[in-house]
């Protein structure tokens, strides 16, 4: 460690140019963008999981996001706008979080040997967070570009055809694990970082956060895998008619 400066008088007593406020703001923004994205992903999971209730229900959720129940017709542009906002947040979060990545091989090697010697859960989970974060740079970019350009291709058949006939399921499968691990570890780290959900003792806080983190991650992974399997099954059964859109039960009598 190096001394910052040689000072003849105590620093706090002297007049000097003040330090930049930027590090504080970047730190808060990193946590804030992460939390918003993680909460969005919770919501996203429940919306896509609507297929587990029924095709009609998933159709209704999709139409809701396209403004169908507000304007009387669908505007997929609404979805694109939302995707655009998430894309901006995602890029901002990636840029902010990249500051924490090992900057060179030496730093990488130091951290990895430290991790191996320590056998310490939170230290090891940081490596998982870095690895999944790195993978998400690419996985999320592909997914969001597709959604940005084809916002209308969401629905019980449209999504299933994309997952199965469009061969998107391998991407979604890898992305599911990366997102849930990254988000779960990240949220609990943010809570510890800012002292949220503090219990009577720090040890108790740690124990509760850990329990909550793994509980939520396990639940979302299970829900995500079941949901993906449902889309794959529907996509497989609908492969012969891939491209055809779903018509909800109540409209079938009037739509030929």
């Amino acid at each position: 460690m190096h001394r910052k400066a040689e000072l003849a008088v105590p620093a706090a007593m002297a007049v000097r140019p003040r330090s930049s406020r930027m590090p504080a703001q970047l730190d808060v923004l990193q946590s804030a963008t992460g939390v918003v994205l993680a909460l969005f992903m919770w919501g996203h999971m429940f919306f896509v999981a609507s297929i587990l209730v029924s095709k009609d229900f998933m159709w209704a959720v999709t139409r809701m996001f396209e403004g169908y129940f507000f304007f009387g017709r669908s505007y997929p542009g609404v979805v694109s706008t939302l995707v655009g906002g998430i894309l901006l947040l995602f890029v901002a979060h990636a840029a902010l979080a990249m500051r924490k990545f090992p900057a060179n091989y030496q730093q990488y090697r130091l951290f990895m040997s430290h991790r191996a010697a320590m056998r310490h859960e939170d230290t090891s989970l940081w490596v998982v967070q870095i690895a999944t974060g790195f993978a998400l740079f690419f996985l999320v970019s592909i997914h969001l570009y597709q959604m940005l350009m084809h916002p209308g291709d969401i629905g019980p058949y449209a999504s299933s055809d994309r997952v199965w006939s469009g061969r998107w399921w391998p991407l979604y499968l890898v992305m599911l694990f990366c997102v849930e691990l990254h988000g779960g570890i990240g949220l609990s780290r943010v809570a510890a970082k800012w002292g949220w959900f503090a219990s009577a003792t720090a040890r108790q806080t740690r124990r509760r956060l850990k329990l909550l983190k793994w509980g939520v991650t396990a639940f979302l992974l299970a829900l995500g895998l079941t949901t993906l399997a449902a889309y794959m099954k529907i996509g497989h059964e609908h492969a012969a008619q891939a491209g055809e859109r779903y018509t909800p039960e109540q409209y079938r009598s009037v739509t030929p």
């Binding site: 590090p23 504080a24 780290r189």
Partner: peptide
């Protein structure tokens, strides 16, 4: 108040 200080902490705990 910088990245060598409190904002460098990555909460590895």
């Amino acid at each position: 108040g910088d990245d060598d200080g409190i904002f460098g902490c990555m909460t590895l705990l």
